[in-house]
Structures are given as C-alpha cells and as structure tokens.
Design a protein around this nucleic acid. Sequence first.
DNA 1: TCTCCATATTCAATGTTGATGAATAAATTA
DNA 2: TAATTTATTCATCAACATTGAATATGGAGA
Lengths: 196, 196
Amino acid sequence: MNKLRGRPRGNPPTRARIAEAARGLFLRHGYRGTTLRAIAAEACVDSALISYHFGSKQGLFGEVTQLQCAESLALSTVLAGDPAGLPDRLLRAVTDLWDDTEFNRLAVQNEDVMRVFREYLESEVLGRIAEYLGGPDATERAIAAVTVIGGLIFTRYLNPLPATARLSAADVHRILGPTLRVALQSRPRYALAGRR
Amino acid sequence: MNKLRGRPRGNPPTRARIAEAARGLFLRHGYRGTTLRAIAAEACVDSALISYHFGSKQGLFGEVTQLQCAESLALSTVLAGDPAGLPDRLLRAVTDLWDDTEFNRLAVQNEDVMRVFREYLESEVLGRIAEYLGGPDATERAIAAVTVIGGLIFTRYLNPLPATARLSAADVHRILGPTLRVALQSRPRYALAGRR
DNA sequence: TCTCCATATTCAATGTTGATGAATAAATTA
DNA sequence: TAATTTATTCATCAACATTGAATATGGAGA
C-alpha cells in the first residue's frame, strides 16, 4: 500500500488482478465473508480502486459470477444428440459441471435460511418419506422425490423463475405430477441390462 | 428511547415484542435489509437489548425462522392416505403451504447469487430446452425438467443435503434418470400424443 | 422487611464495513 | 506541447453490529 499516488507507469492489468483476487476470496469465504479491504489487500491495491473499477461490491461479484456462468454448461452439446438420450446427457452435463469446477463454491451459503431449510428437508421430509416407502431402495426413491420437491420449492418460491412462479397451483400439480410419481417408483436395479 | 435506565417496572414481555417486530421486518425487507436499529425502533427498545436477549442478529433470525419451520407442512396428513395418491398429496401440501403462508417470504433473497442463477436458469436452461422440445406443451415440459434439474442443483450443490450430496454421479444418474425422462415427456391430456 | 445478587434496560463507545470526494500522476488525444 | 481522460492513493463518511459500563428493578433468603 506504500505505493505512489496517481496513475502508475505502464498499463498494468490491475482490474483483472482485482477480479482474480476477488474470485479466489469469494470462493473461499463466500460473499459476505469477503470484504473489499481483503480483496484490495490481496490485489495490493487501495480498496477505493474497487469501487472505481466495478462500481460496488455487488458489481464486482456480478462480474466474477457471470463470467463463471458463461463458461458453464455447454448446452449445445447436450442438445445435439437424439431426444431419447436427452435426460442422460442433461444429467451428465449438470453433474460434470458442478462436480468438477469450483462453480458450486460460488454459492454463497445463505448462512441463515439455507441451514434451517436444509435440516428441515433432510431430517423431516426425506427421512419420513423413506420411512413411509419402506423396502430396500426407499432412500433412493425418497432422494428422487426430495429432489423434485426441492426443485419446485427452489424454482417457484425461494428463487422464483417467472415461468414457474406464475403457474397456478393446479398447473403445477398437472405438470409435475407424473414426474414426481416416477421419482417415487421403485426402480428394480438389476432386473434389466439397459444402457448407460 | 426517552425511557429511563435500568430495569423497567413490572415484567413487560419485551423479548417477545422484539421477536414479533423482527419477524415483521424480516418478512418485509429480508435479512440484510433489516437492521437491528430498525427492529429496536419498531419495538421501542435500545438496539443493544437485542444482542443481550438473542446474542446476535443471526441468533434472532434463527429463532424467528425456526418458529416458522416448526409450523410448516403437516406431513402426517400427507402420508396418511394410499400410496397411489401420494404424489398429488405431496404436491398439494407443498403448494398449499407455500402459496398461503408468508413462509416463502422469509427466504432471504440472496441478492447476489440468486439473481444471477435465476436469470441463467430461466433464460438459458429453460428457454433453450423449450425451444429444443418444440410443440404445444414444450414450455410445460421444460418447466418440469427445470424443476428436476433445479432441485438437483439445489439439494446437491447449492444447499447440499448429506444424503444427496454423498451420492456418486453415477448414482445420481441412475436415481434421477427415469424422473427426468418423465418430466420431459409429452403428457397428452386432451389430445393424442405426438412426439416432438 | 432488609440485603444481595441476578436480570433487564439505556447509554456511550468501538471496530468494521462499503462508499465517496479530493488530490495526484500517468496515458492519451488534439 | 497543451488539454483531457484515466488510474490510483488518501482521508473521510455514515451505517452497522456488537460490547462494556452504568443503573434500576425483581426475586430469594435472612
């Protein structure tokens, strides 16, 4: 920080260095856990420079995050093949992306709601559904069901997508009913060879 | 504020009043948008009293939130009937709960990640899937698929449930494949099925 | 009833935080 | 070369959550 005032010599890529430092810190400590001063220190820069370049902390975060989103999930490949294999390809794309990159770590743990909601979903909903179903694959069926339900809650309420949120309850029932029914079905594992 | 120092006469339920005020403000303005000072003002109390009673802002929020969770989703009723009707009853319970109560408003909009993620899910994933599917009910099928995918992302990555998160990618594919397949299927209700 | 301690409350201060405006120096343009 | 635009530091701000000190009441035991 003991640098000179005024514009520095050359055209150092300071802005990029800030974004890089921010990305690392956001990944490690989440949004709230990362202060502008920490980013500035990491980038060896005065913290005011961040506001200058990115407008605000949210602006910086948005830029760093959107960069990640742009790189993510190459949908073209997924949508290129035959319709029959689409489910598999979609699932594979999602898990490949999220398992391998650091993208998921950008998910700021919303330390408050998220924890409560997770515990509730896990112990109450999932546990009791599995108990109700019984049988050897009860847990797996419950997981599938919780996924659909969690997806509904997430895309309709927690973080409403307009297309989903503006449906009536009846439409939601009609559209998701068959899906949830299949999720809850027992899927005999070794009965059929099937392809992967 | 112009009150006397020291313990007040009688045993006024100040703690409860604070919780009540906090609940209202959290509902209206979310977690970050609600300051301890605002809660204190609403409850006609010094803001230091909140730290005294609840330890911290998070402590207060946790108490208010957990109260809501306890009241929510009467699973017993859902699990009481015949297995065949379970999907419908589950869906109904979820939508009834979340449509009618204020519970969903406690979902602190994680103003940062959530917005980006929502826009991405809506415009990229949902839009392109619907475009790919084509046909009259493409949007509905895309919504169902996005729900499953969003549920997977949410319960496995964003807010990982242990049971779901510790699965291998292959297990995820196996368990959710049939579900997603059905979500993507055309569901002819009033007309004959035509693929694609 | 008197004494003491735990409890409830206000007040004042502290240390962070994100942001802003002024000063300054290099780059760029005319 | 002169003027303007851009990049940077410094000093400061207001808001925030939290903490410590001061003070007054409630309740338990004599």
